[in-house]
Computed example of a mutant assay.
Amino acid sequence: KKTEGTLISIEGSPPDLVDPPKGCRFSARCPFKIKVCTQEEPLLVPVGENHFAACHRLDEIAVLQEKAKEVDTWRKIPS
Results as ranks from 00 to 15, higher is better:
1 K>L: 11
1 K>G: 13
1 K>T: 06
2 K>L: 08
2 K>W: 10
3 T>W: 10
3 T>N: 11
4 E>C: 02
4 E>A: 07
4 E>R: 14
5 G>E: 09
6 T>V: 06
6 T>Y: 00
6 T>N: 15
6 T>D: 12
7 L>F: 11
8 I>Q: 10
8 I>P: 00
9 S>H: 07
9 S>W: 13
11 E>R: 05
12 G>S: 00
14 P>A: 03
15 P>C: 03
17 L>T: 08
18 V>C: 05
18 V>K: 13
19 D>A: 09
20 P>F: 02
20 P>W: 11
21 P>D: 03
21 P>M: 00
22 K>I: 14
22 K>F: 02
23 G>Y: 01
23 G>R: 02
23 G>K: 11
23 G>V: 00
24 C>M: 01
27 S>C: 10
28 A>R: 14
28 A>N: 12
28 A>L: 02
29 R>D: 00
30 C>N: 11
30 C>A: 06
32 F>L: 05
35 K>I: 02
36 V>L: 15
38 T>I: 08
39 Q>I: 08
40 E>T: 03
40 E>C: 04
45 V>K: 15
45 V>L: 09
46 P>D: 05
46 P>F: 05
47 V>H: 11
48 G>H: 01
48 G>Y: 06
48 G>A: 07
49 E>C: 02
49 E>G: 02
49 E>V: 06
49 E>A: 09
51 H>R: 10
52 F>Q: 08
53 A>W: 01
53 A>N: 12
53 A>T: 03
54 A>M: 02
57 R>A: 06
57 R>K: 09
59 D>T: 02
59 D>Q: 14
59 D>Y: 10
60 E>Y: 11
61 I>E: 15
63 V>Y: 06
66 E>D: 05
66 E>L: 12
67 K>C: 03
67 K>M: 10
68 A>S: 15
70 E>S: 04
72 D>R: 14
72 D>T: 05
73 T>V: 11
73 T>K: 02
74 W>N: 10
75 R>P: 01
76 K>W: 04
76 K>E: 12
77 I>R: 02
77 I>V: 12
78 P>L: 08
